[in-house]
């Protein structure tokens, strides 16, 4: 009898929040590991065209990016409005591609080098001339796996 009365007299115990930081830290680490920080800031304006036959690029560590587009508004004064190539975090020309690809290969284990993909993120308004030059340089550099980056088109053509 006395046992029961004793218990009812006590105030309800609070839920311990001591483990809350641990839970949050776990979430934090999850996000830190999963997300890939964008390694380069975009210097050119890229609005990729739309397409339907898309493949998803699987391994991000095996993908290098080549951006082509007009220089961003803040560079318009120094670089003009003609489409430019961006490799890594700087403006480049198609002559720099061979070195860029070679450098990227260095950082990839030898047995994975065959699956390196170059993702061309090209603005839809750019003319094919510059794209063709890039493609030729890539072929000369022996980098034949290429991805034309595009967005999913939902509806019909035009």
């Amino acid at each position: 009898m006395s046992k029961f009365s004793k218990k009812s007299g006590k105030a309800t115990p609070e839920v311990s929040t001591a483990s809350l930081p641990d839970i949050i830290f776990m979430l934090l680490f999850f996000f830190m590991v999963v997300t890939v920080l964008r390694d380069s800031e975009l210097l050119v304006q890229v609005n990729t065209p739309q397409a339907t036959e898309l493949t998803k690029l699987e391994e991000k560590s095996l993908v290098n990016y080549i951006y082509i587009g007009k220089p961003a508004a803040r560079f318009a004064e120094t670089y003009g409005t003609k489409p430019r190539i961006q490799l890594g975090d700087k403006f480049s020309t198609e002559k720099d591609i061979a070195l860029f690809i070679a450098n990227f290969r260095q950082g990839v284990p030898e047995n994975r080098r065959a699956s390196i993909t170059s993702s061309l993120r090209v603005d839809g308004k750019v003319t094919m001339g510059i794209v063709q030059d890039v493609k030729t340089s890539l072929r000369k550099a022996g980098q034949v796996k290429v991805n034309y980056s595009a967005k999913k088109r939902a509806g019909e053509l035009k």
């Binding site: 949050i24 920080l37 898309l54 998803k56 993702s119 030729t136 072929r139 000369k140 595009a150």
Partner: peptide, 28 residues
């Protein structure tokens, strides 16, 4: 503090999804 860090990471990271038309160029 952990929440602050978490929110910082949530905001700054972009989960960049890359899709496109995969082609194999002919060797030069």
């Amino acid at each position: 503090i952990a929440f602050l860090l978490l929110i910082f990471f949530l905001v700054t990271t972009t989960i960049l999804e890359d899709k496109g038309i995969l082609v194999r160029l002919p060797p030069w």
